[in-house]
Structure formats: C-alpha cells, structure tokens
Amino acid sequence: MPNASQEEVFVEISQLVKSALDGYKVCIFAYRQTGSGKTYTMMRKPAQPDEKGLIPRSLEQIFQTKQALQPQGWRYEMQVSMLEIYNETIHDLLSTNKDASRIENGVAGKQYTIKHDANGNTQVSDLTIVDVQSSREVNYLLD
C-alpha cells in the first residue's frame, strides 16, 4: 500500500534475497512512469536506518548471511554488474567508457546482447563485472 514503511516493503521481498543466496534466480523488476516512486522504494536514504530502500536492506542481508556462514565453511564469491535498458538500448552503468553504447554520427557504439545458455542462465555480453567483498563496495558502485 502507498503508506507502507520501507521495512514493511522489505519484509515482503526478503525471502527472495534468501532464495538468491540459496542459488535460485531472482529478479525484482520496478517498472512505472516517471515520478511514481521506484527510486524511493529501491534506494531511499541508505544513511538513515529506518528509511533505507530495498537495495541497501538486501545488501545488508546478503553480506550478513555471508559473514554468518563463513565459520561453517561456506564461501560466497560476489560480483556486480549494472545495466540500464532505456529506449530499448542496453547501457553498461559501470563502464569507464560512458560513450560506449551511445550513437554518434549515426554509428552505434558497443552493442550488448542478451544470451541464454542451455542451463537457463542469462548473461549480457561485454558488461563490466566487478568483484566485491562488502556492501560498502557495492554502495560505492551504486553511488
């Protein structure tokens, strides 16, 4: 509901985060018109504990689980890639070459393709991938 707190919204999706840690594929897709509250719900104000959005809360859950399971011999390797699809064009948000996917002088830059393998895994070609060890590193990339 529109008056739900960030905590209430997170409780609704926290089991999806656990499922991702268990190895299942998970996607939370936010799609609405401009100004409808997508960024508010997903990010909000990470520095203010009760106003954190889904992404900061999910990161906390992921890295807390990683730390809690390390003494039992569990090992997680985590990587981050970020993309935006805008006007049916994929943009690599972590690319150091910000013009790679733009069209200049009628010639398209880097072309990304979505690929599915026989195991049902999906990858986007040539995206920048960054190894991360902490939620702080992921937040830095988000910033």
Rank of each mutant, 00 (worst) to 15 (best):
E7T: 08
E7C: 03
F10A: 06
E12V: 12
I13S: 07
I13F: 12
S14T: 13
S14M: 10
Q15E: 14
Q15P: 01
L16F: 14
V17S: 07
K18C: 02
S19L: 04
S19T: 02
L21G: 05
Y24C: 05
K25F: 04
F29V: 10
F29Y: 14
A30N: 09
Y31H: 07
Q33R: 03
T34V: 14
G35Y: 04
K38Q: 10
Y40H: 13
M43H: 02
R44I: 00
K45E: 13
P46S: 00
A47M: 00
A47V: 00
P49D: 01
E51A: 08
E51H: 08
L54R: 01
R57M: 11
R57C: 06
L59F: 07
Q61V: 03
Q64T: 09
T65G: 02
K66R: 11
Q67K: 13
Q67Y: 03
Q67T: 12
A68C: 06
L69W: 03
Q70Y: 04
Q72G: 00
Q72L: 01
G73E: 01
W74T: 07
W74R: 06
Y76H: 10
E77Y: 09
M78R: 02
S81K: 05
M82N: 07
M82C: 10
L83D: 06
Y86P: 03
Y86E: 07
Y86F: 15
Y86T: 04
Y86W: 05
E88D: 15
E88S: 11
H91R: 15
L94S: 12
L94Q: 12
N97Q: 14
D99Y: 06
A100E: 15
I103L: 02
E104I: 11
V107P: 00
A108M: 05
G109Q: 01
Y112E: 02
T113E: 14
I114K: 07
I114L: 15
D117M: 08
D117V: 05
A118L: 11
N119E: 14
G120A: 11
G120E: 09
T122Y: 07
V124K: 05
D126A: 13
D126R: 10
L127Y: 06
V130P: 02
D131N: 15
V132K: 07
Q133L: 09
S134Y: 06
S134H: 05
R136W: 02
E137V: 06
E137L: 04
V138M: 08
N139T: 04
Y140N: 13
Y140W: 02
Y140T: 12
L141Q: 11
L141F: 11
L142Y: 03
